[in-house]
Amino acid sequence: MDENAITLSINGRDTTCFVRNAATLLYILREKLGLTGAKPGCLNGDCGACTIDVDGEPMKSCLMLAVEGEGKKITTIEGMKQTTIQSQFIEKFAFQCGYCTPGFIMNCHALIQKHPDATDDMIKNWMESNICRCTGYKEIEDAVKTALRQANQNTDG
């Protein structure tokens, strides 16, 4: 089993680990680094449960090789502390089983950072990449819209 050492910058720290060239970033995060917040749901880009943040963009970590992560700034749910979107998810009861939650939060967070003034259409376009099977999406809608409103107020002044 050929493994090479790579260095990844995750949640503000550099970590060196041995990976197979074919290993996905999701696999390495979970199995080698113990960062199990990103979840496997389909392993082919359909569900968004594995979403992380790579250089400010939401990225499905099951679609990315670990070796591609070198030199990039990676943030996982474990790197998120007391963000507005997290408190809004709690406040609005935007999860039930919670399995889709880390992926949704990472996706929402990137949206809020990049487009605090996102329109309804844009929110829909972004959120469509994740699946939640427990909620009826209403609570997620409330959470993301409130968080966006708060982000907007902050940028306005």
Binding site: E31, L35, T36, I77, E78, Q86, F95, G98
Partner: peptide, 13 residues
């Protein structure tokens, strides 16, 4: 659940 700390079966490694 909002911090990724909640462990599901596959998360035991």
């Amino acid at each position: 659940k909002v911090t990724g700390a909640a462990k599901y079966t596959a998360d035991f490694i």
